[in-house]
Simulated assay, not measured.
Amino acid sequence: MEWLQILVLAAVQGLTEFLPVSSSAHLILVPVLTSWEDQGLAFDVALHVGSLTAVIIYFRKEILQIVQSSLAVFKGRAVNEDARLGLWIIVATLPVCIIGFLLQDVISNYMRSTLVIGISLIGFGLLLGYADYFKRGTKSEYQMGWKEVLIIGFSQALALIPGTSRSGISMTAALMVGMSREGAARFSFLLSIPVIVLAGGLEAIKLLRQPQAIDWFSLFAGTLLSGVIAYLCIHYFLVFIKKIGMQPFVVYRVLFGAWLIWFFHF
């Protein structure tokens, strides 16, 4: 693979995995705007490994506390806020796993059109703007109950619709139930860990069944670049939304969605 192709794909993955702008909407443009051949399944797995590594490193302290507190519960200790957060992550991940398994054929066969992506970008972008402007509260990721977690979990399943954005819809739902911008973003990032593990695991299984040779240098470079870009994205996004909020992403989604519909359908 060319260095430029590695860099572009790693940047697209590293940025759009965590920003509320939809990775599928951006990845669809890469083959349209370039003459590059498909990067292949192995490189897709490498990019996901990079994103996963970034979010784990960034939230390493929180993850360690969640694991330690959860293990302590099994030893008879009381459930604290870290153990409860670990449970909330599991509960909020279940809907997207179950619905994704049941509807994977429908989604892959009927919903991967640029029209669906454009409409999703605009519609769910406006919903994000509404939630950020009118509904956001002050709750952190540690102050949720069953109701809030289930709402966020089932909303995350909407990300199976291309153009929705997993991070975008989970942040939208979190804001709708009264979470702060930072709390919504942090919980969305923590939720990405099991989702990326499951999605990347399925891709890895498919990869093991393929006989073709693997370009290990490109995979390593893609993993490293994707991870660095994703880490920086997480850090600066959390800083950005404290000062400015979600509205710039809303404007971007609406304009991008409108352009996609115009470019591909008019």
Rank of each mutant, 00 (worst) to 15 (best):
P162W: 02
W146L: 12
E148C: 00
I169E: 07
W146A: 14
V149I: 13
A173Y: 00
I169Y: 00
L158P: 07
T164S: 11
M171Q: 14
A174Q: 04
E148M: 02
V149E: 04
M171I: 15
A159Y: 06
A159L: 08
G168M: 03
S155Q: 09
S155K: 02
E148N: 06
R166W: 05
S155E: 09
T164H: 12
A157P: 10
S155C: 12
T164C: 10
W146K: 14
S155G: 09
W146E: 11
E148H: 00
G153C: 02
I151F: 12
I161Q: 05
I161H: 02
I152V: 14
G163K: 04
L150P: 08
S170T: 15
I169D: 04
I151M: 12
A173F: 08
Q156G: 10
L160W: 11
A157I: 04
A159H: 12
L160G: 12
L150G: 11
S165W: 02
E148F: 01
S155N: 07
G168F: 01
S155V: 10
F154M: 11
L150Y: 05
S155I: 08
A159V: 02
A174M: 07
S170F: 01
E148K: 04
T164Y: 09
G168R: 01
G145K: 13
A159I: 05
S167T: 10
A157H: 10
I151Y: 13
G145L: 07
Q156Y: 04
G145M: 06
G153E: 07
I161N: 14
L160S: 12
G145N: 12
Q156H: 13
A157S: 13
I169T: 03
G163L: 05
R166A: 05
Q156E: 07
T172N: 14
A173H: 06
I151Q: 08
